[in-house]
Write a protein that binds this DNA or RNA. Sequence first.
DNA 1: TTATATGCAAAGCTTTTGCCTGAGT
DNA 2: ACTCAGGCAAAAGCTTTGCATATAA
Lengths: 124, 124
Amino acid sequence: MKYSKQRTEILKVVSNNCNHPNVESIYKEVKEIIPNISLGTVYRNLNTLNENGLIKKISNPHGGDHYDKTLKDHAHIYCINCHNMFDINLNTVDNIKQIIEKQNKCEIISSNIIFTGICNNCKK
Amino acid sequence: MKYSKQRTEILKVVSNNCNHPNVESIYKEVKEIIPNISLGTVYRNLNTLNENGLIKKISNPHGGDHYDKTLKDHAHIYCINCHNMFDINLNTVDNIKQIIEKQNKCEIISSNIIFTGICNNCKK
DNA sequence: TTATATGCAAAGCTTTTGCCTGAGT
DNA sequence: ACTCAGGCAAAAGCTTTGCATATAA
């Protein structure tokens, strides 16, 4: 991977935010710094960064992937009202994995755990 | 919902199989019975059946939705080798939901839990 | 100087939609 | 008869890709 201003900026946007931005909002935000960046570059770099383990892709059942700076496997809640995605501290994910591997005699590589609902903030 | 031969056949394909077919394989299978069925009809009916709670849509992080006859919330494992999806008996899903609701003061409507790995059969 | 990344636009996929015809009640 | 469903093809999204140019090492 050769350095590029574009990729650095994209990584920054994902890393500096606590939300879990999707492609659209990453594109928007990076465009403010590098106005002539193309959407293709954003897609290409998100894939590269994901493949190199610098960010983590979270696929959303409601459409569109989100990207996460936290690399450790963890669960999320997706709010159908504000469309944001939040981390869930579910320290049982690793335990569950092991249980499933034993019970089903299979090998688990990764997990995608998304709860859909209404977040703390939107409930008010 | 008015009766239709097409919808009945689509529901049968999802219900009579223990695998969790995706659109492509549902289309293929129904086509053997109703050769002139169109792909649009399959999509339309899968959505209708899902909305009416007769089947359950499972979105796959690796692309393409799968459809499930089991309506109760449960987890799945997706095998990256044979591309099949299998049920996981995870009787803790309901417990986890409640824990999350309490901890995060949010409301959970549904869950999408998919583990990716290599299934029992492909491991051999 | 050589390899990799970008921008742009075209192509590719999957899914949805419009419109007219056909089937169900 | 009237309404809902299907077939077909076009459109809509989202994502990837090819190609020429630009940038990094």
